[in-house]
C-alpha cells in the first residue's frame, strides 16, 4: 500500500515535469520547422542566407530531443521486444520488468551524471558556435534536465513493477 503511495508521489513530480518539458519541446519543434523553411527561402529564393541558421538548427535539435525524453517514457513509447515476456505469468513478468527497469534506471542515471560533467567541461573549454558565437554549455544543461526527468519517470516505473511483483 505504502509502495503505491510512494509511486504516486514520485509520479506527482515526474509527470507534470515531463509534460512541461514536452510542451517546451513542441514550441521549439515549431520554431525548428519555421527556421528550416526560412533557411530554404533565404538560400534559394531571395539569396540571403540567414547567418548561422545551421548552428541554430543544431541547438534547437538538442532542445527538441532532450525535452521529449521523459514524456516519451511516461507513455512507455520506447521500442522493446515483447514476444517472450508476454507469454509468461503476470507475476514473473513484473519481476522481469522490475529487473530490466532497474538496468534502465542505472544507465540513464549514469548518462545524466556524465551529462552534468559535460556541462562543466564545456563551460571550462569555452566552446562556442562558429558564426553566432553562442556557447554550447547552456544546451548541455537542458540535456541534463531531460535525462534527469527521464530517470525519474523510470524510477517510478521500477517501483510500480516492484509493487506488482510483491503483491499477494
Amino acid at each position: 500500500m505504502s509502495l503505491e503511495r510512494f509511486v504516486g508521489s514520485i509520479e506527482k513530480i515526474a509527470h507534470p515535469v515531463s509534460r512541461f518539458f514536452n510542451f517546451g519541446g513542441v514550441g521549439f519543434l515549431c520554431i525548428l520547422m519555421l527556421l528550416v523553411m526560412a533557411h530554404v527561402i533565404g538560400r534559394y529564393i531571395i539569396t540571403f542566407p540567414i547567418p548561422g541558421s545551421v548552428e541554430l538548427i543544431e541547438f534547437l535539435m538538442i532542445l527538441v530531443v532532450f525535452l521529449g525524453l521523459a514524456e516519451c517514457a511516461v507513455h512507455r513509447g520506447n521500442v522493446s521486444v515483447d514476444l517472450f515476456v508476454e507469454q509468461l505469468p503476470k507475476r514473473v513478468q513484473a519481476v522481469i520488468d522490475a529487473f530490466t527497469c532497474l538496468c534502465s534506471v542505472g544507465i540513464v542515471s549514469l548518462i545524466t551524471w556524465q551529462s552534468a560533467v559535460q556541462v562543466k567541461l564545456l563551460w571550462e573549454s569555452g566552446h562556442v558556435s562558429g558564426v553566432l558565437h553562442i556557447p554550447h554549455w547552456p544546451f548541455a544543461v537542458v540535456m541534463v534536465f531531460g535525462w534527469a526527468a527521464f530517470s525519474l519517470v523510470l524510477v517510478a516505473h521500477f517501483f510500480e513493477y516492484l509493487g506488482r511483483a510483491l503483491r499477494k
Partner: peptide, 26 residues
C-alpha cells in the same frame, strides 16, 4: 566509457543531418 556516455548523446542530437527525423515525422 564515461567519455562516450557524455559525448555521444549531445553530438547525436546537435546534428544538422539528423534534423530530418523530427521534420519528416512531423
Amino acid at each position: 566509457a564515461y567519455g562516450q556516455l557524455r559525448i555521444v548523446p549531445m553530438s547525436i542530437a546537435a546534428n544538422y543531418d539528423l534534423c530530418v527525423i523530427p521534420l519528416f515525422m512531423l
